[in-house]
């Protein structure tokens, strides 16, 4: 029993540290990639290729003054960053990050908690993150923040349905909700190691998932909640110092979480030949991340009503269609 607790704790610490590190260097990646897409160079001064920039940023944010405006609801204001930060990290509890391996004679599973309803857990937890945004916007007592929060709410209502429905296809095909089993199903020993990936069985489902995931994480082109050009900084206008950086980290942690879930559901998680399984997952995650950043470098922001139209009139019907077709095929089999 004690052994199990120690192993689990170590796994938790390792995963959290890894996720936070990935978050930090995702900011670097984003700045670099977007910069090169705009013929700029991005950070170059801190370390080789500006690689130490995240550390410099973190130090700067820590030493900034923690401003709390007079008009805020103090308790909610303090809670909101935590509410948006925790669910983002929590997702990684059920993401299988490696194959089972042996470590100093102990048999270790490559997942923190193999819930039998892992997928459901992920979707429940990622939806909680929006409360952080809404509460932050409401408690700030600022018009811009409130607008951001309102938009986040509307966006959430429009997208959560499509987001949930987009993965039902996968669940129908796999007939399981456990992330671990989902990954194991997608493995293959043949030279076409990717033949069992669900992305080939659920192409439409994958596209829908991808679109909704971008909206879910409040990223461009669906970044209406923090639209810099319209709402100053949206829901975190009034935040500064570490409180702001918690929102910042949680945005990237959310991106990473959604990337990890996408890689697990559609691209076979840690499955892959030659390289160690952790690296395969990281590789797939960062391909997703690159796509996110690419998206930001390409598409302009949606308008408010366009987004709701798109969510309800395009994504929702398509997700239903996908579910229906998949269900029909599953029944025929």
């Amino acid at each position: 029993m004690l052994e199990m607790i120690i192993i689990s704790s170590v796994k938790v610490i390792v995963v959290v540290v890894a996720v936070l590190t990935c978050c930090a260097w995702s900011t670097w990646l984003e700045r670099k990639v977007v910069a090169y897409m705009q013929h700029r160079m991005g950070p170059t001064l801190a370390g080789p290729f500006g690689l130490l920039q995240p550390i410099a940023d973190a130090l700067k944010l820590i030493f900034k003054e923690d401003l709390v405006p007079k008009s805020v609801e103090k308790v909610t204001f303090a809670l909101a960053p935590i509410i948006s930060f925790v669910p983002a990290i929590l997702t990684f509890a059920v993401v299988p990050f490696a194959a089972d391996f042996e470590f100093f004679g102990y048999q270790v599973t490559g997942i923190i908690s193999d819930l039998n309803i892992g997928v459901l857990f992920v979707f429940a937890v990622t939806s909680l993150g929006i409360y952080g945004i809404v509460l932050a916007g409401w408690s700030s007592g600022s018009k811009y923040s409130l607008m951001g929060a309102l938009r986040a709410t509307a966006q959430m209502i429009s997208y959560e349905v499509g987001y949930g429905l987009s993965i039902i296809g996968v669940i129908l095909v796999a007939n399981t909700l456990s992330m671990k089993e989902l990954v194991e199903m997608q493995g293959s020993d043949s030279i076409w190691f990717f033949q069992n990936w669900f992305v080939f069985k659920q192409p439409l489902g994958f596209l829908l998932f991808l679109t909704c995931a971008v909206a879910e994480t409040n990223r461009c082109p669906f970044d209406m909640a923090e639209a810099e050009s319209e709402l100053v900084a949206g829901y975190h206008t009034e935040y500064s110092s570490m409180r702001f950086s918690m929102f910042f980290i949680s945005e990237y942690a959310n991106m990473l979480a959604v990337s990890a879930v996408g890689a697990t559901l559609f691209f076979g998680g840690w499955q892959g030949p030659l390289l160690p399984s952790v690296l395969w997952l990281l590789l797939k995650m960062f391909l997703f991340m690159f796509f996110y950043i690419w998206l930001r470098g390409t598409l302009p922001r949606f308008r408010y009503d366009q987004l709701m139209n798109f969510g309800w009139k395009v994504l929702f019907p398509l997700a239903l269609l996908n579910t229906m077709i998949t269900a029909a095929f599953v029944m025929i089999d």
Partner: peptide, 17 residues
């Protein structure tokens, strides 16, 4: 649109260091 941005991604930056 994606092709356009990807093409520019591989071009040399115009920034003078």
């Amino acid at each position: 649109g994606f092709v356009v941005t990807l093409r520019h991604f591989f071009k040399k930056p115009v920034t003078l260091d």
